[in-house]
Amino acid sequence: MSNRRIPRSRRAIGAVVLLLSAVLVALVGIIVSTVPVLIVSTLYAVVAGGVAARLLTDEVAQLRRDWAADRAQLADSNRNASVARSREHIAFADEMGQRVRVRDEQIASLRDAMVTAEIELAQARERVSAERARSAALESDANSAQSDLESARIDLRRASDALAASESAELQVRAELLAWQEAASEESRRKFA
């Protein structure tokens, strides 16, 4: 509804003029009080009232058509707005789905990195265990193989360093995974709040 105030139409003004003229003719007929004047004034009042009623009926019908057109236009604009909102919701859902897929891929790659680090740690532990067994064997034969004992200690240190480096890498990967998961859950809470 672009215009809330309805202007007076020619039909409504014409109907009012006809009714006022019918009242004046009726008053003249009453004042003159002769039968022919009363008959003419009565006939004029009836015809003027009928024409005024027809004019007002046409005016009301036109107002109803205009109101119906306004309601149809409003319904159409609401439908268009609803379609636009629906498209925006679908686009938003697609974007969020894509972000979730990217995060899932990142989590999968971090899990793969963590599994690799755990495998390396297990291998390093096996090497340390093997080196410790070798060192124990060399220490039992210390009198005959003093030089072999020294090299075994060096190998043991290397294996310990490798174990420490592997454990450090595992802790770093776990810390990164936890930090990423916290960031992801914080961002999810922020996006859907």
Rank of each mutant, 00 (worst) to 15 (best):
R4Y: 06
R4G: 01
R5D: 11
R5G: 04
I6K: 13
I6F: 06
I6N: 08
I6T: 10
I6H: 11
P7I: 05
P7D: 10
P7Q: 08
R8L: 13
R8Q: 14
R8P: 10
R8T: 14
S9A: 09
S9G: 12
S9C: 08
R10Q: 13
R10V: 07
A12V: 11
G14S: 14
G14E: 13
A15F: 03
A15G: 06
A15N: 05
A15L: 05
A15W: 02
V16I: 10
V17M: 08
V17G: 00
L19R: 15
L19I: 08
L19M: 09
L20I: 11
S21E: 09
A22C: 09
V23M: 13
L24G: 05
L24W: 05
V25G: 02
V25N: 03
V25Q: 08
A26W: 05
L27T: 06
V28F: 10
G29W: 02
I30K: 11
I30N: 11
I31D: 07
I31W: 14
V32Y: 00
S33G: 12
T34E: 15
T34M: 04
T34N: 12
V35Q: 06
V37T: 12
V37L: 15
V37R: 08
V37P: 03
L38C: 04
I39C: 05
I39E: 09
I39P: 00
I39A: 14
I39S: 12
V40E: 07
V40H: 02
V40N: 03
T42K: 02
T42E: 07
T42M: 09
L43M: 12
L43D: 04
L43E: 03
L43R: 05
L43C: 11
L43K: 02
L43Q: 06
L43T: 14
L43F: 14
A45C: 11
V46Y: 03
V46A: 15
V47A: 14
V47G: 03
V47I: 15
A48F: 09
G49I: 05
G50Q: 06
G50N: 04
V51K: 01
V51L: 14
A52E: 03
A53K: 03
A53N: 02
A53G: 07
A53Y: 10
R54T: 10
L55R: 03
L55E: 01
L55S: 01
D58L: 11
E59L: 09
E59T: 10
V60N: 10
A61P: 00
A61V: 08
A61Y: 03
Q62Y: 07
R64A: 13
D66Q: 15
A69C: 01
A69K: 05
D70P: 00
R71W: 00
R71A: 08
Q73F: 01
Q73R: 12
L74E: 15
A75T: 08
A75Y: 00
D76H: 12
S77A: 12
N78T: 01
R79L: 13
R79H: 12
N80W: 04
A81G: 11
S82N: 04
S82D: 05
V83S: 11
V83G: 02
V83T: 12
V83D: 12
V83C: 03
A84S: 13
R85D: 13
R85L: 14
E88N: 09
E88F: 04
E88K: 07
H89E: 14
H89F: 10
I90E: 09
A91P: 00
A91F: 03
A91T: 13
F92P: 00
F92Q: 07
A93I: 14
A93V: 12
D94S: 13
